[in-house]
Design a protein around this nucleic acid. Structure first.
Length: 610
RNA sequence: GGUCCGGUAGCUCAGUUGGAUAGAGCAUCAGCCUUCUAAGCUGAGGGUCAUUGGUUCGAAUCCAAUCCGGAUCACCA
């Protein structure tokens, strides 16, 4: 039980005993006391006093006294200011908490509960490389999965690759027209970039043709339809759907180039999937449900043969689910995929990590699934996030104005190397260790940068301003971790020399009243750190409920910040007494553990030295 | 036009189940390396919480209206 719930429930029973008034713990608001007042936690009385028919001054004192009497181990004193009851938690409570947890490798992690959750994320197109927007998606999806795992859920990570459609045919066509049989191997270009280049080439050619046609007097709209490359791409899609061998072969070859490139990038950024779905295999799945929907009267057929659903009662529009030519649409295949996934995994919840431009789509999808009474409709959740934009506006892969994922990571690596070298602290590192360190710092900085803001906020990324390594960043937190590890390295070097008194053993073993007496005078920064550490589970909980990794990022940053103040203010190795030293080593150990665990929830590694 | 999301310091963002004098980072300025790693620490300046009205002991937070920015409302995915 967290300290906050403990206080709330103590207050609840106190109020019941004193006034026979029935409140539940959640009625009692318990906050951290503001620094300018004396106290650790504050119980807000305003909302209670009306019902108690007492002034908050009187009630606060009565409640405070009663709490002290009933829970002498928990509270040591209190004060009442206006409607606020500030309580001070006893040092022994905090020391007890620290003793119990400082050496627990699972601190903060919940036991398995067996709830099964499918997280679908990444979802790339196979006609272009991953860009900054995908990175936000990947980091968010990965982190959300880790956070849910930490709450004891079983997670299945899935990905749907959009590997078919006219946009795929566009790069195929451009390759046929312009490549002269060049391949990633022959050019030395990474496969996904190679194919992406042809996608851009297609659009260049298309624009050119539209312009030519317009200049010859054709209306722009018509020119866009009549441009030969566009018509050829559409023909290619028909060929593909008809299974024309050379088209399918070309499609497979080019997709494989892309997948090889993706694999490399995913490995770099640490994304993985338990199951990859390909749209080419799922795009026909939803059609069965069109039939069913018609039978159930959920859908209806219009005169031209198109099949629709009317969602106007739900405040939406009419939506087509099957074209008049009998083919399905995006929404149709998503219904099919949802059912497919459910049959495969029988999940309790299904999370889709997809940009907020598709909010409408997922609203409709859920509604349709509900109306069709598909079990997969239960607990379908769209984890949406804001687009990443450039100062000049949206990124457009057609126009080549994207921040490429691979390029960005390379750039971050260079910066990590430069900054590290400038500090000159890694002279004894091997090549391999350096390489690993740069990787940890560069990717950490990037992930933290994209995860530290609330998912819903759209963000503007300015490539001119490189990502900072100071302040609210991963390197800051990583540095704090490395500092702590450094202390322990030196400590174990010392303690192996003087084997008589191992400070850690003396800490755990010391049960004598003298020791606890001395230990129980926590300095403000010591207490502040322990209070921070105690909040970890509550923060994970909040992050899991809201599916919001930024909560973790903010928390771990504040923890590191508090530790750094503590570190500057008080010596650990040369503490005033052996008891203090033992206590501080425990605090440091738990801090390191929480930093490492929290960062892992963000998909970020921490270095032992930096 | 309908629906949804956002607007908090120069910039990037916390804070929104209503609680005390609205907080961080960056940037700016002033200090701190003879002591466990200065990618650090300490301090200063910087605010009409978009606007107006309402609800109440109390509003950045809830309600209404307005303004600004974005997304979406495709027989594209």
């Amino acid at each position: 039980m967290s300290i906050v719930t403990e206080i709330a429930s103590a207050a609840t029973s106190t109020i019941k005993e004193l006034y026979q008034a029935e409140f539940i713990s959640s009625d009692i608001i318990v906050n951290l006391t503001k620094p300018e007042f004396e106290g650790d936690y504050t119980i807000v009385l305003f909302n209670l006093t009306k019902q108690l028919k007492k002034s908050s001054e009187v009630a606060g004192n009565e409640i405070g006294n009663h709490l002290l009497q009933k829970h002498p181990g928990l509270f040591t004193s209190f004060n009442v200011i206006k409607g606020f009851l500030n309580v001070i938690i006893s040092d022994s409570y905090w020391i007890d908490f620290l003793q119990k947890n400082y050496n627990s490798s699972l601190y903060g992690i919940s036991e398995k509960k067996g709830k099964k959750i499918v997280v679908e994320y990444s979802s790339p197109n196979s006609n272009k490389p991953l860009h900054l927007g995908h990175l936000r998606n990947n980091f968010l999806g990965w982190s959300a999965a880790e956070i849910l795992k930490a709450k004891g859920n079983e997670i299945i990570k899935t990905c749907i690759v959009n590997d078919r459609g006219v946009h795929i045919c566009k790069s195929m066509l451009a390759w046929k027209l312009f490549a002269n049989s060049a391949t990633p191997e022959s050019t030395g270009i990474k496969g996904d970039h190679f194919v992406g280049d042809y996608y851009v080439k297609f659009n260049d050619e298309y624009k050119k043709q539209v312009n030519e046609l317009s200049e010859n007097g054709m209306a722009k709209e018509e020119a866009e339809k009549e441009a030969p490359v566009m018509k050829a791409a559409q023909q290619m899609l028909l060929d593909w759907e008809a299974g024309k061998p050379d088209t399918v072969e070309l499609w497979q070859m080019m997709n494989n180039w892309v997948y090889k490139g993706f694999e490399e990038t995913y490995k770099r950024i640490g994304s993985d999937f338990d199951k990859i779905y390909y749209e080419s295999e799922t795009y026909l799945l939803g059609k069965n449900f069109v039939e069913e929907g018609l039978r159930k009267g959920v859908f209806y057929k219009k005169e031209d043969g198109g099949i629709w659903i009317d969602l106007r009662a739900e405040g939406l529009d009419e939506k087509i689910v099957q074209r008049k030519d009998g083919t399905g649409l995006y929404i149709t295949q998503d219904i099919g995929l949802a059912v497919n996934k459910y049959e495969e995994y029988k999940f309790n919840q299904s999370i889709y990590v997809v940009g907020d431009e598709q909010n409408y789509h997922f609203k409709v999808l859920k509604l349709i699934c509900q109306k069709l009474a598909i079990p997969a409709a239960q607990n379908m959740y769209h984890l949406n996030y804001g687009m990443v934009e450039l100062p000049g506006g949206k990124m457009k892969s057609r126009e080549g104005t994207v921040v490429d994922a691979d390029d960005l990571i390379d750039e971050m690596l260079v910066i990590a190397q430069q900054k590290t070298e400038a500090l000159g602290k890694v002279k004894d590192f091997t090549e391999e260790e350096l390489h690993h360190l740069y990787q940890v710092i560069a990717l950490g900085a990037l992930k933290f940068f994209l995860l530290r803001v609330h998912p819903k906020k759209r963000m503007i990324f300015n490539p001119e301003e490189s990502i900072d390594f100071h302040g609210f960043t991963a390197p800051f937190v990583q540095y704090t971790y490395a500092r702590i590890k450094s202390i322990f390295r030196k400590q174990s070097a010392v303690s192996s020399e003087q084997s008589a008194v191992s400070s850690r053993q003396s800490a755990v073993g010391s049960q004598s009243p003298v020791d606890s007496q001395q230990q129980s005078e926590l300095l403000p920064l010591e207490k502040e750190l322990i209070i921070h550490l105690e909040q970890f589970s509550a923060v994970i909980n909040e992050a899991a409920i809201e599916l919001d990794p930024s909560k973790i990022a903010i928390y771990v940053f504040n923890l590191a910040k508090t530790f750094n103040s503590f570190y500057t203010e008080h010596s650990i190795s040369n503490a005033e007494s052996e008891e203090k030293k033992a206590l501080r080593l425990q605090i440091a150990q738990l801090t390191a553990h929480v930093i490492k665990t929290a960062m892992k929830l963000l998909g970020i590694d921490v270095p032992e030295r930096m």
